[in-house]
């Protein structure tokens, strides 16, 4: 049974229909990429999952249960942690408080403050300082660490490489692979081909709010992937 599936989802913001019949799924332990150009609706998939965009047709399926009007916290409480585009750091909270927010779902597992500080020592060193004082890469670490605090079965990442230096992107790629090896499924929404190739095994291409192609990454050349993103 998939951890997360979209079943022919049409989604809107107010009157604007952004997603048209979007269908995909992520199985336990899988590494799935969603790619597409700017503005095709990638973030809207995330927003639909967390009830920010409205489902007009179809349904999202979490652990076998269909939902057509999910509350914001449903995904997190179902074991799906989301790293939002723009990271969503709470500026009035310290680094440690931001991390504790991730643990609000009370799911048991190996991730706690100590484990996150082992993974990202810089967060531990600065635990009492405000989250906004961090560099872009450190903020991304905080957002990822906070998602891990939920001990998720599935980690959804919306363009985690945005604005980061190549060396940091490499570290993220290793981290995502490691997490997947340890059993956490990864859904990587990205435009960075290198990161997609290093992390994902399966992909979906989104164009104008519709899934236009999907398959295994193994047979794909870099050029073929590039063609889906740059036009």
């Amino acid at each position: 049974m998939p951890l997360l599936a979209f079943d022919h989802v049409d989604a809107t913001y107010g009157q604007a229909r952004i997603l048209h019949g979007v269908t995909f799924h992520v199985d336990p332990g899988e590494r799935v990429a969603v790619l597409g150009r700017n503005g095709v609706g990638k973030t809207t998939i995330v927003n639909t999952l967390c009830g920010v965009a409205d489902i007009q047709a179809g349904a999202i399926v979490l652990g076998g249960e269909r939902h057509t009007s999910p509350r914001h916290y449903l995904a997190a409480r179902s074991g799906i942690a989301i790293v939002l585009q723009g990271r969503g750091i709470l500026p009035n909270l310290t680094i440690e408080e931001n991390l504790l927010l991730g643990a609000s779902v009370d799911r048991p597992g190996r991730w706690d403050l100590g484990a996150v500080y082992d993974l990202f020592p810089i967060l531990g060193e600065r635990r009492q300082s405000p989250g906004l004082g961090l560099s872009g890469g450190q903020q991304q670490m905080l957002a990822i660490g906070r998602a891990l605090m939920a001990n998720p079965n599935l980690l959804v990442l919306d363009e985690p490489s945005e604005g980061l230096a190549p060396v940091i992107i490499d570290e993220l790629a290793d981290l995502f692979r490691r997490l997947a090896d340890e059993g956490t499924a990864i859904m990587l929404i990205e435009q960075n081909i290198g990161l997609i190739q290093r992390v994902a095994s399966r992909y979906y291409v989104l164009s104008k709010g519709t899934v236009v192609e999907s398959g295994d990454l193994a047979g794909m050349t870099t050029q073929q992937l590039q063609d889906h993103i740059t036009i």
């Binding site: 914001h72 916290y73 997190a76 969503g88 709470l90 609000s104």
Partner: peptide, 13 residues
């Protein structure tokens, strides 16, 4: 400061 993000992180708002 941000009720939507807080809820997305799993807080039952």
């Amino acid at each position: 400061v941000d009720p939507t993000t807080t809820a997305i992180l799993g807080v039952d708002t």
